[in-house]
Simulated scan of single mutants.
Amino acid sequence: MAEQRRSKPGASGSGRSGGPRRSSDGPAARGEGNKSRGGQGQSRGGRGAGEDKRRDSRAAGQRRPERAGGPGPKKRPSEKPDAAERTAAQQVYDGPPLPEDITGKELAADVRAQLRSLPEKLALRVARHLAAAGAMIDDEPEVAYQHTLAARSRAPRLAVVREATGEAAYAAGRYAEALAELRAAKRMNGATAYLPIMADCHRALGNAKRALELAKSPSVARFSTAAKAEMTIVEAGARRDLGQMDAALRTLELAPINSKSRESWSVRLRYAYADTLEAAGREREALSWFHRTNAIDAEELTDAADRAEALEARVKD
């Protein structure tokens, strides 16, 4: 679940158009126990003569007469309801069909280690749902999200499960759900690696100021270079959301946009700068940076080549 999404960024300059790098309490299908009946009815400590007579008449095969207009005999519910009768919570618990070739061993060792706190059979089922989500998240994010919900229904108190659910929700464009799940994971394990995604969720929900607050969190200073780049992209996008174009450009210019690295974070950082330059009306500079982005984008993570071609036509005119 920690892989980079392969969707190409669009022209919005949003951190969501390509998304920050994914770091990797809904309905739990629990049966309700019998409700306590303490205090209801008479004490069972002794029986009077009337009770003995009623007991004797029932033993002799006499039926107690039904009250007028009262309910008839209750029907026993079916033990195995049809699929159409299953509740929404049960359907979430079931999850989408699991591919036969998904075993759960596809998960990283540290993730599998966290699942060992569960009973063996349950851990295997959760692992298979998480592995299926990881395999589908780029091409079928909504199905991946449903797999993580099935895992969460079985193991809602594991941070790694809540983290995976948040990442899948983010990939599926369910930003409120993603924010809630990542907050839950952060409460459980105290990790801050989710902050760029959480900040971008705030942007998507129209709360750019909250996104900027997360971008200024003290923990960001301890991020890896790649994670800092992702937060910078989101921060610049939040500035653009607020109409602060100059501040957005300054934010990106303070980042290592001239780095010689060809890692995905460098590609995305350059792309964000080129996109923001174009949005600011500085088309010749934007063209130069789209070319510089394309020069290191060997995996075609962005559409920098197409953007450069379109800009060249306009600049010549």
Rank of each mutant, 00 (worst) to 15 (best):
R6Q: 14
K8F: 02
K8L: 12
G18F: 10
G19P: 03
R21E: 12
S23G: 13
D25C: 04
G26H: 12
G26D: 04
P27M: 10
A28S: 13
A29Y: 15
E32P: 04
G33V: 06
G33H: 04
S36E: 04
G41A: 03
S43I: 02
S43Q: 06
S43F: 01
E51P: 01
E51H: 07
R54M: 07
D56Y: 02
G61E: 06
G70R: 09
P71Y: 06
P73E: 13
R76M: 05
R76L: 11
K80E: 11
D82A: 14
A84H: 02
E85Y: 08
A88Q: 11
A88F: 08
A88E: 13
Q90V: 05
P97K: 09
P97V: 03
T103K: 03
T103H: 00
K105M: 03
K105S: 11
E106N: 08
D110P: 02
V111F: 12
L115D: 05
R116K: 12
L118F: 09
E120N: 08
E120H: 02
A123T: 10
A123Q: 11
L124C: 04
R125D: 12
V126G: 07
R128G: 00
L130Y: 08
A133K: 06
I137C: 03
D139W: 04
D139R: 15
E140G: 00
P141K: 01
E142P: 00
Y145P: 00
A151P: 03
R152Q: 14
R152K: 10
S153H: 03
A155C: 15
V160N: 02
A164W: 01
E167R: 03
A169R: 00
G173C: 08
Y175R: 08
A178I: 05
L179N: 09
A180H: 08
E181D: 15
A185H: 00
A185C: 05
A185D: 02
K186M: 05
R187I: 02
N189Y: 02
A191I: 01
A191N: 12
P196K: 09
P196Q: 09
I197R: 14
I197M: 14
A199P: 07
L205T: 06
N207R: 13
N207W: 07
A208P: 00
R222S: 15
S224G: 08
A226R: 04
A227T: 10
A229N: 12
E230H: 08
T232D: 07
I233S: 10
D241H: 07
A247D: 15
L254Q: 14
I257H: 03
I257A: 09
R262C: 06
S264G: 02
S266R: 06
S266Y: 03
V267D: 04
V267R: 01
L269T: 06
A272W: 03
A272Y: 03
D275C: 14
D275G: 09
D275N: 13
D275W: 00
L277I: 09
A279T: 05
G281T: 06
E285Q: 14
F290H: 12
H291C: 05
H291E: 12
R292P: 10
T293M: 11
N294E: 11
A298H: 13
E300W: 06
L301F: 10
L301I: 14
T302P: 05
D303Q: 09
D306Q: 15
A308W: 07
E309F: 10
R314L: 13
V315S: 02
K316P: 01
